[in-house]
Design a protein around this nucleic acid. Structure first.
Length: 804
RNA sequence: GGGCGCGUAGCUCAGCGGGAGAGCACUCGCUUCACACGCGAGGGGUCGCUGGUUCGAUCCCAGCCGCGCCCA
């Protein structure tokens, strides 16, 4: 054993051993209460980032802890096919080769995606291995593998048969760059500088004008009404009249609707159901036509004057404004900053337009999920996210599930020449309505999140009745970041209750986001992203795990490497403490505490065990890790080892020390998995692996000694502050001399008697003043007053002690 | 516009009604036979601002200033 712990090699060796010996593997036939976590499936094209590393560490700590406690644990790994992202990556590749998916054709393109994935995909699992994550890698699943596809088809057909899947022309979020619709959740609202155009619409009866304000003058071409708030006195007289839409000359009505904000612009709103979500809803309620003038390429199309056709939206807007100016119907234009929807994948401005799509009605799915969250059957940590999740479900809208992509699960929908719809899990031979054998499959694929919703049970074999499904569903915990609560967590809860009749997990951990040092989200394009694998290379996996947990909290945190370095020092300290014991020989491991500090350290380890158990149960990992640090440095090394060091030759002392070390290693293992296993393997007469060693059981026989060193520690504190040595005898004197080494400490300026006297006199004065305040004594809680009296006594004793 | 959260030591963060804490950084002293990724000693904070509640406020309430996130 070298004086400097070098994690490289050691960590990889244990990772190979644990996995190779099948210790990560979950056996449904094995006994034990189950403990199940399904990893949030990373994009198959992705690489490990800080969020994955933190999340992986959190889950691994929980899994290792439960494994040691004898649970039948399953940590399910796998990948998500990530429709848009993967398709885009392969299309980029094709572009470099001078071809395109259209040139290849659908089948060849899909084939090409698979090839590409076999070459470049699926690297994250090896990165999780390098972090020490004890996932059951034998069970790796992919949302596009054969069994999973069946699950997705079953889910769709199930929803169709329930009557919740419907096809309709509704307003969608069209991304001209991705060439597909995206769901409302994939639209990011970003503030942009824009221009607000005030346009006058002529009343059809020639009785003047109404002025409206719009940020998108090009969409005037698709106006079908003006709307005002029903209580708006300025416009009451106009309701029911007609106005003439500029440029196109269409006569449209003025309607009244509560959804009009009378404070925006002039209070009169142009209604364009074809290109605005709110207008669309107003239009549906008022039975208005849904005209579309902007096409899938973002250019002007449809029933418009010829000179507009083919223009970009900006060009069309310019021409509309010119028309308004020419006809004296342009009132003004002013700067306007507002939030505009952008595609979160491509960053392109979303084009809302009306399109025939497949939708899922969500109300009946959402209702039991809301109940599960509100009743606390599904618990969020921290709880505030449960309320947010529930609020979102309560305002849920139909989900646009079809995507105009080639990579993904193709809809199980076929059409016959008469337009009848057949929905079936496998390819039907005839139309379900008219029996026509001529069937064409809908070309669209499903939203990636449609398949992710099934993750907790499709990975276990659903829709088949497998031993895994019976044994491991429902699971226990889901851990993830805030950003996919709606996209993923809520949908798993809905799908789990609907298909399995039970919630998929009990606890949802929402971990913090690790920000770059500038306080912004880490960003690849800004170069502020950090590669966790590099951190592992630099500091070791144990140190990285420790550091990530130390940084984690319910609050977002700016990254600094300092906590990881702290973890590295802890690993090194533990390594050297173990060296001290191992180098002095001895082959017995048994707790036979004879002296004060031996009973004390065993009690301290037990006490810390219950403290970190409480931390783990409440998913408070940073405090758990902090306790482990101080237990190791302060209690185990500084007090215990220093105390016994002179007596390491004694067999009893040695055997007890090994027993204490064993317990410490057990406590540390879930976090510092590798270094603890390495040290464990050096312990005398050690068989079996720490990873599957039983979690330590507290021993009540020394529990009473958890404060056994208080007098010595007070004496040490007193000596440090004042330089006064307290008379002690027996174990206490021996421990004090061994740890404090007063003769050496004197040399470096320890203890300034006068300052300490002054400090204590100050404290005594403060305390006396408080206790002589009648209102304090009368109003404060009795135990607070009592505590203050005891404090005062202690200060007086302390002062006496250093004056004598 | 609606909602949530955060401003505590130079840095990153705990604490959240009765004596301001940790790690790092900084200063000083130690190659002490486990560890210099160490040991010992030390300096450093009107706990964003202004009011209020209270015997007592970093902690509770209100307002303000600054920063961030989510939803529309």
């Amino acid at each position: 054993m070298e004086p400097l712990y070098k994690p490289h090699g050691v960590e990889e060796r244990w990772q190979r051993a644990w996995e190779g010996e099948g210790l990560y593997h979950a056996d449904p036939e094995a006994p034990g209460e189950t403990y199940v976590i399904a990893i949030p499936p990373p994009n198959v094209t992705g690489a490990l980032h800080m969020g994955h590393a933190l999340n992986g560490t959190i889950q691994d700590v929980l899994i290792r802890w439960h494994r040691m406690r004898g649970f039948n644990t399953l940590w399910q790994p796998g990948y998500d096919h990530a429709g848009i992202a993967t398709q885009a990556a392969v299309e980029r590749e094709l572009r470099k080769e001078g071809t395109s998916r259209l040139e290849l054709g659908r089948d060849a393109f899909v084939e090409r995606v698979w090839e590409w994935l076999h070459e470049y995909g699926g690297i994250i699992m090896s990165q999780f291995r390098r972090l020490g994550c004890s996932l059951d890698y034998e069970r790796e699943r992919f949302t596009m593998d054969d069994g999973y596809v069946r699950a997705v088809m079953r889910f769709f057909v199930h929803l169709y048969e329930r009557g919740w899947m419907f096809r309709d022309n509704r307003i969608v979020n069209w991304c001209t760059d991705c060439g597909t619709t995206v769901s409302d959740l994939e639209v990011e609202h970003i503030d942009v500088d824009d221009t607000l155009t005030y346009a006058r619409y002529a009343l059809a009866d020639g009785d003047g004008f109404v002025t409206i304000a719009t940020a998108r003058p090009a969409t005037i071409l698709a106006d079908v009404a003006l709307a005002v708030h029903p209580d708006d006195e300025r416009y009451k007289a106009l309701i029911g009249k007609d106005v003439i839409v500029p440029v196109v000359g269409r006569k449209v009505p003025v309607i009244a609707d509560e959804r009009v904000d009378p404070t925006f612009g002039t209070g009169a709103l142009k209604i364009t159901p074809g290109h605005d979500p709110t207008d669309f809803e107003i239009g549906r309620d008022h039975g208005l036509p849904e005209l579309t003038v902007i096409g899938f390429d973002g250019r002007i199309t449809g029933d418009v004057p010829d000179d507009f056709r083919g223009l970009t939206e900006a060009e069309a807007a310019e021409r509309v404004v010119a028309w308004l100016k020419e006809h004296d119907q342009l009132e003004k234009r002013e700067h306007y900053r507002h939030a505009v929807g952008h595609c979160d994948r491509s960053g392109t401005r979303i084009q809302p337009l009306v399109m025939l799509q497949w939708w899922c009605a969500m109300d009946d799915l959402a209702r039991p999920a809301i109940e599960a969250i509100d009743s606390g059957r599904v618990r969020f940590h921290p709880p505030v996210h449960g309320r947010v999740a529930s609020d979102w479900l309560k305002a849920i809208r139909p989900w646009n599930v079809s995507r105009q992509l080639w990579w993904g699960h193709q809809l199980p929908i076929w059409y016959c020449p008469d337009g009848h719809v057949t929905c079936a899990e496998t390819e039907p031979t005839a139309c379900a309505v008219c029996g026509s054998p001529e069937l064409t499959r809908d070309p669209d694929v499903l939203d990636t999140w449609f398949s992710s919703a099934l993750w907790p049970f499709a990975t276990l074999g659903w829709p088949d009745d497998t031993p895994e499904l019976r044994r491991y569903y429902p699971g226990d915990v889901n851990s993830t970041g805030r950003d996919i609560i709606f996209l993923w967590v809520n949908r798993m809860v809905m799908a789990g209750i609907e298909l399995m009749g039970d919630i998929p997990f009990r606890d949802v951990i929402i971990h913090s986001t690790i920000l770059a040092s500038d306080g912004q989200r880490m960003s690849k394009s800004k170069g502020t992203g950090l590669d966790p694998v590099e951190l592992i290379e630099q500091h070791g996996a144990d140190a990285t795990r420790y550091g990530l947990l130390k940084m984690s909290s319910t609050q977002d945190v700016r990254f600094t490497p300092v906590p990881i370095e702290e973890g590295r020092r802890l690993a090194n300290k533990l390594w050297n403490a173990s060296r001290l014991l191992l180098m002095s020989g001895g082959d017995e491991v048994e707790a036979r505490p004879k002296s004060l500090e031996e009973r004390w350290i065993l009690a301290r380890i037990d006490a810390t065990r219950s403290e970190i158990e409480r931390d783990f149960e409440t998913y408070d990992f940073s405090h758990a890790v902090d306790r482990l640090y101080h237990l190791t440095f302060d209690d185990f090394c500084d007090w215990y080892l220093e105390s016994i060091k002179p007596r390491l030759g004694e067999a009893d002392v040695k055997a007890t020390a090994f027993a204490a070390l064993e317990r410490l290693l057990e406590l540390l293992h879930p976090v510092l998995a590798h270094v603890t296993e390495e040290i464990w393997s050096h312990l005398p007469a050690r068989e079996g692996r720490l990873i599957v060693a039983p979690w330590l059981q507290p021993d009540a026989s020394y529990a009473a000694d958890v404060d056994a060193l208080v007098r010595v520690q007070e004496a040490a504190e007193r000596f440090r502050r004042s330089g006064v040595v307290t008379p002690l005898d027996g174990d206490e004197k021996r421990i004090f001399d061994a740890v404090v080494k007063p003769e050496r400490a004197k040399g470096n300026g320890a203890g300034r008697l006068e300052e300490e006297v002054a400090r204590l006199e100050g404290e005594i004065a403060r305390s006396e003043k408080m206790l002589s305040n009648e209102r304090f004594v009368a109003n404060a809680r009795a135990e607070v007053v009592q505590a203050e009296r005891e404090k005062l006594e202690r200060y007086r004793r302390e002062l006496d002690a250093i004056r004598n």
